[in-house]
Amino acid sequence: MYTILKKEILNPTVTKMVIQAPNVAKRAKAGQFIILRVDEQGERIPLTIADADPETGEVSIIYQIVGKTTMALNQKQEGEALQDFVGPLGQPSEIEGERVCVIGGGVGCAIAYPTAKAFHHAGSEVSTIVGFRNQDLVILEDEFKEVSDHYYLMSDDGSVGEKGLVTNKLEELIQNGVQFDKVIAIGPVIMMKFVCEVTKKYNIPTVVSMNPIMIDGTGMCGGCRLKVGDEIKFACVDGPDFDGHLVDFDEAMSRNRAYASFEKHERDEFCNLLNQEVH
């Protein structure tokens, strides 16, 4: 069993939990994820590791309350325990580049933060651009500022930071002569698509995290199947990080919408069909 050491409400729909999981904390790296189960009857869901401390054995997760399992998870309180907490899984992010721009959108900022932190600790010059719909949804502002040489906060309605999209700020910086060795985009699939459209114009290598399309965390269901260039990859196994200029975002979004529209029994059937198709 894995004890919940701390629970913090970050905004009305997003919660942070700190879990006692020493074996995960010892090996966790930026970009990796865990699979948890709330109780014996619960389904397994993948969540990205937001932070880990190998000395204390603490692992932080940040999740959005969007369905039955995350609702059940959110009912848990400090001092209670989770049934399963398995990881780290997935391929770690490649922390290379002297001047990098880490872009986070919405709850995707929970994944962008450990990446920005890893680059900061590696000695890179880190610019972060984070975007939210409004002031009430902002998360991890102090944490990002601590690991960023340059921090830009954007909001759709202008209620906090600058009004506009993360892509607006990214293109503004590039056009003003700021040079990046690499851009890392993490957030809604549509956001990552448009970030890649900007960076492709300027020939800037770009990495995207396809965490949003992961379903069971193992690749067995086939729901995270992804076309990357001429190859078929699986976000849970081969990623979640990929070359953003090679990802077929339209296909990924179409698959994600189809899966999200199903009831649970239909989702299970859909995953089985995809798995048969793959094999």
Rank of each mutant, 00 (worst) to 15 (best):
N272P: 03
F234W: 06
V38G: 03
F132T: 02
Y152H: 02
F180D: 02
I62D: 12
K117P: 01
E55M: 05
G219E: 07
Y63A: 05
L82T: 04
V183G: 04
N74L: 07
A50H: 10
K16A: 15
S261C: 07
K233A: 14
D53K: 12
M192T: 10
R27A: 15
I19T: 03
I139Q: 04
E251M: 13
G222I: 08
S60C: 11
Y2D: 06
P188R: 13
E78F: 12
I34L: 06
G42D: 13
V130Q: 03
Y2S: 10
K26E: 08
G223S: 12
I49R: 07
D156G: 03
G161Y: 13
A25C: 11
I232S: 04
M1R: 12
I204E: 06
A30V: 02
V38C: 02
V247Y: 09
I62A: 11
G161S: 14
E197S: 12
V178E: 14
L140Q: 05
V278W: 15
F234S: 08
E231W: 05
D142E: 13
V100W: 04
L10R: 01
T115D: 00
I215C: 04
G104Y: 02
L10K: 02
Y113D: 01
D53M: 14
A235C: 09
D156N: 09
S254P: 02
G87N: 04
I62N: 12
T128R: 04
C236D: 07
G105T: 09
M191Q: 14
E197D: 14
G161D: 07
L36E: 00
D181N: 10
V66C: 06
K6G: 03
T128K: 04
I4V: 08
C101K: 01
V130R: 00
G97P: 05
D243R: 09
L137P: 00
L89F: 10
P12L: 08
C109Q: 04
V147Y: 05
V24A: 06
C109S: 09
H279T: 15
E277F: 09
V102G: 01
C224L: 13
V107M: 00
K29T: 05
I111V: 15
H245Q: 09
L47T: 01
V147E: 00
D181F: 00
L47M: 11
F194M: 13
M192W: 05
V166G: 04
L137N: 00
V38Y: 01
N256L: 08
L274N: 11
F119G: 01
F194Q: 08
I190Q: 09
D156K: 13
D51E: 12
G106D: 02
E231I: 08
P92Y: 08
K182Q: 12
G244W: 11
C271L: 06
A28S: 12
I103W: 00
L165G: 03
P212S: 14
G187M: 11
E78I: 12
M191W: 05
I65Y: 06
A260Q: 14
G229C: 08
I232V: 15
T115M: 09
